[in-house]
């Protein structure tokens, strides 16, 4: 893949819709299934991933000529681990209450497929600024996915939104369980695909 010709805004929008990490690329499914029982969890983890993605992408793009092709994966892992540690330290120091809830999962970001994949596919072939915008797009796309799934599961599972009781009863307890994560992801994926089909059909009929 040669250097991208997309504009910055296109990069960001692609990350959110056309190449959404969860719904289109089907990467990083573990956090999408396991940690999305509430909007707050999704939002916190999404923010952490956004920062790690942007920082790692920029770092790799900046040092891409220095990385030896045979050890690029260890270097990516090292870069991601470094930024995850930094985010971990910052969260622990400045938002201790939120850190208590997501602290365990922040360390797991090192193993998220989406970040390594983005470094391999994009950052090591493009400029720093393009990688920055791609990182933003991917991070926001991931956050968008986490929050949407979190919204559905929190509302249906515990009848609450952002911790506030909005329904007053629990419609489907099943949605709190991890298995329901698969259902949510599956239905959202189907919706995304459907929108794409409709969009393409319209484009064809217009031309």
């Amino acid at each position: 893949m040669a250097a991208t010709k997309k504009t910055n805004s296109q990069l960001v929008l692609d990350g959110i819709f056309l190449e959404n990490p969860i719904f289109r690329l089907a990467l990083s499914m573990c956090p999408a299934v396991g940690l999305t029982t509430s909007i707050k969890n999704g939002l916190l983890l999404g923010t952490a991933v956004l920062f790690v993605q942007v920082f790692s992408s920029c770092t790799i793009a900046a040092i891409k000529n220095f990385i030896h092709p045979r050890i690029r994966i260890p270097t990516y892992t090292l870069t991601i681990a470094t930024w995850v540690t930094v985010i971990d330290l910052v969260l622990a120091a400045y938002v201790p209450d939120a850190y208590k809830q997501v602290g365990l999962f922040v360390k797991l970001i090192v193993a998220f497929a989406i970040i390594t994949m983005r470094l391999e596919m994009f950052a090591c072939k493009n400029t720093v600024s393009a990688s920055f915008w791609d990182g933003i797009g991917m991070g926001v796309g991931f956050m968008f996915g986490m929050v949407t799934i979190g919204f559905v599961r929190e509302l249906l599972g515990s009848g609450m939104l952002l911790g506030y009781d909005v329904l007053g009863f629990k419609p489907l307890l099943f949605f709190v369980l991890p298995a329901a994560g698969f259902f949510c992801v599956g239905i959202m994926m189907a919706m995304f695909n459907y929108v794409e089909v409709v969009y393409n059909r319209r484009k064809e009929s217009n031309s």
Partner: peptide, 16 residues
Amino acid sequence: RLTLSCLMAALVMGTA
């Protein structure tokens, strides 16, 4: 290169 990368990473983490 790997050593240098590790050192750089250590520097960033230490500063943080």
